[in-house]
Design a protein around this nucleic acid. Structure first.
Length: 528
RNA sequence: GGCCCCAUCGUCUAAUGGUUUAGGACGCUGGCCUCUCACGCCGGUAAUAGGGGUUCGACUCCCCUUGGGGCCA
C-alpha cells in the first residue's frame, strides 16, 4: 500500500452545477460528498453556478438547485445568497460564471500573448469532414492543427473582416499522469487530444478554461466530481501548467446508473430532487440513500443521518465502480425514517398533501400553505371539506398516527385516510363479506355489532373498551375462533377499504355516532 | 471509431493474501404474530465474469479475454 496520504486541512471544495434542468440526483450526490468532505475536515463548501450557456440556463432551475440543497440540509459556505439571489456570500468575485467575464479576459489574453493559444478559423464543415475521415481510418478524432501557424498579420486581417473564429489551446505533445483520489493513478496521452477549443473569443471562455480559472481564483483545493469528467482533467491540468497555476487535487466519483445500467437520466423516471420531495420522500432518507451509492462506512449499520455521515465520511471508502439507483431500498429507508419521526412532525409533513388533495383545509386561510409541500406548523383548526366537520390538530395526529408505520412516502397519506373526512364511502357491498360468508350471515353480524356498540356508554368510548365489548359479542354469537367474521365487515363498513388500521382504532377516532352510522350505511347496502 | 474508467448475491455492499462452509442490507420467499394491510420477530434463496500466472495460500496482486460504463461530435 502506498502511503501517499497527504494530511487534509481546511479544504475548499465546490459544486458547480449548470442551471439547465431540475436539480439532478447525481449532482445532489456529488454535492453531498463534497459537503461531507468539507465539513469532515473543517473546510469550506462552495457553490458556483456554471451558467455560461445562455440558451439553456434558466433562473427557475437555478432556484430549484438552491432550494434542493437547502431542503437536503446541505448548506454552502460561499455562493449565491438564497434570500437575495442577486447577492453573494463570499469574497472571490461573483459566483455565477456569467458575471465573471472580466476575470476570464486576462487569462485568455495571457495565453494568446504567450502564443500558447491561437485563433482558429476553420469552419464547422471542415472540422466535421476531418473528424469523419479520421474516424474512418481508425484514428482518434482530433483537430489537425491547421490554424496553428497562421501569421499574426493574417489573423489580424481575418478578425477585422469578422471571419468567425474560436480560440484553441496548443496541446503539448506529451503524456500526463495524475493521481486520482478515488481511482488512483490515471495516465493519458495528450497527443491524442489535439488542440482543444478553450474560448469563443477574447472574453468568452469555454468549459475547461472557465473551470480552471474559477477553481484557481476561488482557491479550490480539491475537485471532487463525477467520473464523466475524468477526460476533462488532463486538459485542465495542461491549461493550469500553461497558465502557471497550481493545480488542485482531483477525485472522480463513480456515476449513478438507472435500471438499464446507463447514466441516470430522465428516461429512467424521477431523477430530480424536487420530484422525490414532491413524492413525499424525506430529506434524511434521501441523503442517507445517496451517501450509500458509491460509499459506505464498512460496518453493518444502514442508518446514517447527515451528522454521523460527516464524521464517518472518507474518500478512501468510496467505491470505484458505478452504482445503480435502487428505488426499493430508498422506499425502505424512507419508511424507516418516517416510522422514527415524532407524530407531530409527520403530521406536519402530511398536512400539505391532505390540503392539496382536497380532504381538509385550514379554517383560517393563511395563504402559503396551499402552495408549499414543506413542513407546516400545526396550530389551527381544519375543515373536512366533505363533511364540513372541524378537525383539530390532535385528531389529525391520531388519524395519521394509525398510518405512520404503514407509510412508504408521505404522499400516500391521502388515499389511506380519506375515509375519515368523507360522508359516503363508495365500496361494493361484496367487499363486506368475509371469506365464504353470505349476506344473511353478514346482516346478522352487522346487527349484532351495532347492538353491542350501541350499548357502550360515551364515557367508556375507547378502543380497548370497544375491543372488549366486541370480543364478548363474538363469544355470544358463537363466532369464537374466527374474529374476522365480525372484524372484517366492521373494517369495511368503517373505512370502505380492504386494508386499513384495526377497526377499533378507527372507531375510537370516528366516535360512537359516526361508527353506528357507518354500520347502518353498510346494512343499507344489503337488499335484505 | 479512439481514449479512459470499472467488474463480489437481482440491487447496494463487507471481507485491503490466511480469522471465510464469502458477512450484512434491500428485494424476493417460507413461517410466527394476525380480522386486512403494515410493523416486528425467526428462517430460506442467491455472488467472487472467464482463462492464465505470482504465492505454501488469492475475492484480494499481475497479465489476457469478455462484459459494462463514460468522454470525445
Amino acid at each position: 500500500m502506498e502511503a501517499s496520504v497527504k494530511k487534509i486541512e481546511k479544504p475548499r471544495v465546490r459544486i458547480a452545477p449548470s442551471p439547465t434542468g431540475l436539480f439532478h440526483v447525481g449532482t445532489a450526490r456529488t454535492a453531498l460528498f463534497n459537503y461531507l468532505f468539507a465539513k469532515k475536515y473543517k473546510g469550506d463548501f462552495i457553490l458556483r453556478m456554471e451558467d455560461t450557456d445562455k440558451e439553456r440556463s434558466r433562473h427557475e432551475w437555478e432556484k430549484d438547485i438552491l432550494e434542493g440543497l437547502t431542503w437536503l440540509k446541505i448548506p454552502w459556505d460561499e455562493g449565491i445568497n438564497i434570500e437575495e439571489p442577486e447577492k453573494y456570500i463570499g469574497d472571490v468575485g461573483p459566483y455565477r460564471q456569467s458575471e465573471r467575464t472580466e476575470i476570464y479576459k486576462k487569462y485568455i489574453k495571457k495565453l494568446l500573448d504567450e502564443e500558447k493559444a491561437y485563433h482558429c478559423f476553420c469552419t464547422k464543415e471542415e472540422l466535421e469532414a476531418h473528424r469523419q475521415y479520421q474516424m474512418s481510418i481508425g484514428q482518434p478524432a482530433r483537430y489537425s492543427g491547421k490554424c496553428r501557424d497562421i501569421p499574426s498579420s493574417t489573423v489580424e486581417k481575418y478578425l477585422k473582416e469578422g471571419k468567425p473564429s474560436v480560440i484553441r489551446f496548443k496541446m503539448p505533445e506529451e503524456k500526463i499522469v495524475f493521481n486520482d483520489l478515488i481511482k488512483g493513478k490515471i495516465e493519458v496521452d495528450a497527443t491524442l487530444m489535439g488542440d482543444i477549443t478553450i474560448a469563443k473569443d477574447e472574453s468568452w471562455p469555454l468549459y475547461n478554461l472557465a473551470v480552471v480559472i474559477d477553481d484557481y481564483e476561488m482557491k479550490i483545493s480539491h475537485v471532487l466530481r463525477g467520473e464523466d469528467h475524468i477526460s476533462n482533467t488532463p486538459k485542465q491540468l495542461f491549461l493550469q501548467k500553461a497558465l502557471e497555476l497550481p493545480h488542485p487535487e482531483y477525485g472522480h466519483f463513480p456515476l449513478i446508473m438507472g435500471e438499464d445500467k446507463s447514466k441516470l437520466s430522465k428516461r429512467h423516471g424521477a431523477v430530480s430532487i424536487s420530484e422525490y420531495r414532491e413524492k413525499g420522500y424525506l430529506a434524511e432518507a434521501l441523503t442517507n440513500f445517496m451517501a450509500f451509492l458509491g460509499w459506505n462506512p464498512g460496518g453493518e449499520k444502514e442508518i446514517y443521518p447527515l451528522n454521523v455521515l460527516i464524521n464517518e465520511f472518507s474518500l478512501d471508502r468510496c467505491r470505484k465502480s458505478s452504482a445503480m439507483f435502487n428505488l426499493k431500498k430508498l422506499d425502505w429507508l424512507n419508511g424507516f425514517y418516517i416510522r422514527n419521526k415524532s407524530i407531530t412532525k409527520i403530521t406536519a409533513l402530511c398536512l400539505p398533501y391532505l390540503i392539496k388533495d382536497n380532504l381538509i383545509n385550514p379554517i383560517f386561510e393563511t395563504g402559503g400553505r396551499l402552495a408549499g409541500i414543506a413542513a407546516t406548523e400545526l396550530e389551527e383548526t381544519y375543515l373536512a371539506l366533505d363533511t364540513k366537520e372541524k378537525i383539530t390538530p390532535e385528531t389529525l395526529e391520531k388519524i395519521i398516527g394509525l398510518y405512520q408505520e404503514r407509510l412508504k412516502n408521505i404522499s400516500e397519506i391521502s388515499e389511506l385516510i380519506d375515509f375519515f373526512f368523507k360522508n359516503d364511502l363508495n365500496y361494493p357491498k361484496e367487499m363486506l363479506l368475509w371469506k365464504d360468508m353470505d349476506e344473511n350471515a353478514l346482516k346478522e353480524v352487522l346487527e349484532g355489532t351495532k347492538t353491542a356498540i350501541t350499548g357502550i356508554k360515551h364515557n367508556d368510548w375507547s378502543k380497548t373498551y370497544i375491543q372488549d365489548i366486541l370480543a364478548e359479542k363474538t363469544t355470544e354469537m358463537g363466532l369464537t375462533g374466527d374474529r374476522g367474521k365480525i372484524l372484517w365487515p366492521l373494517r369495511v363498513a368503517l373505512s370502505g377499504k380492504k386494508t386499513s388500521a384495526p377497526p377499533f382504532d378507527i372507531a375510537e377516532i370516528l366516535g360512537k355516532e359516526k361508527t353506528l352510522n357507518r354500520i347502518e350505511q353498510a346494512k343499507n347496502k344489503l337488499k335484505l
